[in-house]
Every structure is written in C-alpha cells, then in structure tokens.
Simulated scan of single mutants.
Amino acid sequence: MTDRIALFPGSFDPFTKGHEDIVLRGLNLFDQIIVGIGHNSNKKRYFSLEAMQGLIEKTFEAFPQVSVVTYDDLTANMARSLGARFLVRGLRNTTDFEYENSISQVNRHVYPDVETVFLITSPHLAPISSTIIRELHKYGHNVDEYLPYQLSEVTI
C-alpha cells in the first residue's frame, strides 16, 4: 500500500491556529502532510516566505510526518512532483467552498490523479483569517492568540 501523502497549499501569510488545526486533524487521514507555501505573484507578502517556513517547521517539530516546502508553480504540478495524491483544504464558510471548489476542479484537470479533501474548520477557529490577522498586526494589535507561535520571533 502506498503512503497517503497530502499537500496543504496556501500563502500562509501568516500561518494561523486554524491552519494548524487542519494539519493536526489531517494527520488522522494521511500518512504525511506537506505544508506548501506557495508564491503568488499577484500578492505582496507581509511575512517573508523564509520566516514563515521556519515558524511552521518549528510548530510541527514534534510531528515528523509534517514537512514544509515553498514553491513557485501550479499547486497541481507541485503535488505531482511531491508524490502527493491529495490536496487538503480548510473551509470556514460557504464563500470558501465556492472559491475552493473552482480551484479543485482546475487542479483535477491539471493532475487527474489528485483528490481535494475539504475539512470544515473547527467552529472556534472559523473567524480567524490571515487577512484579518495581518491588518490587526499592522496597526499594533497583539495577534499571538490566533497563531501557534510568537510573532516576536519574526522580522517583517
């Protein structure tokens, strides 16, 4: 039997407790989860790729079945190159579903052997989004309660 490898793609700018929850719950379904920090040429990052990669690696240092990569390619191509047959995505609401459903169809077109698995965000984490956290942080609000690490470790 082959390993069930899942890629959890996103910009993770920043990686939140909601993202952490999806990874930890995904470990009940998959043998290995690769957190893939994608480069989006249409977005300017708030936190550097390198800093976020280090923070996510530290978050999961007790979980050898979780690894972190950065990539600048189509998610489906990255999944194929990593041997991942699954993409895991978190859904907070119906708006997320509409967006993610379209992307999953395109990924399946590019890589027919990939399946997207949607996990519903745990209710207490559903209000958290990277966009909101960036905005709060930009204006000096402490956002540590939303993150599985301390932002004091990051240089912006």
Rank of each mutant, 00 (worst) to 15 (best):
H19M: 05
S104P: 01
N40V: 05
S11Y: 02
S102T: 15
S41F: 10
S41C: 09
I22Q: 03
S102L: 13
T2S: 13
E98N: 15
V88C: 12
R134Y: 03
P127I: 07
F47C: 02
R45N: 05
R45H: 05
T121P: 04
R89G: 03
S102Q: 15
V117W: 02
G90Q: 08
F63C: 09
R134S: 06
D21K: 04
T2W: 12
Q150Y: 08
Y111N: 15
T70R: 12
E100G: 10
F47A: 03
N142Q: 13
E135K: 11
N107Q: 07
G90K: 09
G83W: 10
T75I: 15
F60R: 10
L119D: 03
R89H: 04
I22H: 02
I103H: 06
D144Y: 05
H137A: 08
R25D: 04
L119Q: 07
D96V: 12
F63Y: 15
T95P: 01
D72I: 06
L87D: 03
V114E: 01
F118C: 09
T116H: 03
T16L: 04
D73V: 05
H141Q: 09
L27T: 08
R108H: 15
R85Q: 14
P123I: 09
L49V: 09
S152Q: 15
T75A: 13
S11L: 05
V69C: 09
L147H: 06
F8M: 04
N101V: 08
L125M: 06
F63L: 05
T95K: 14
G10C: 07
T16N: 02
H109C: 11
H137S: 09
N40M: 07
G90R: 06
P127L: 08
I5F: 01
T59H: 05
T16P: 05
T2E: 13
I5R: 01
A79K: 00
I34L: 04
T94G: 11
M1L: 14
H109D: 14
K43V: 07
I5H: 02
Y146K: 11
I132E: 10
Q150E: 12
K44Y: 09
V143G: 00
N107G: 03
D31A: 07
Y111P: 00
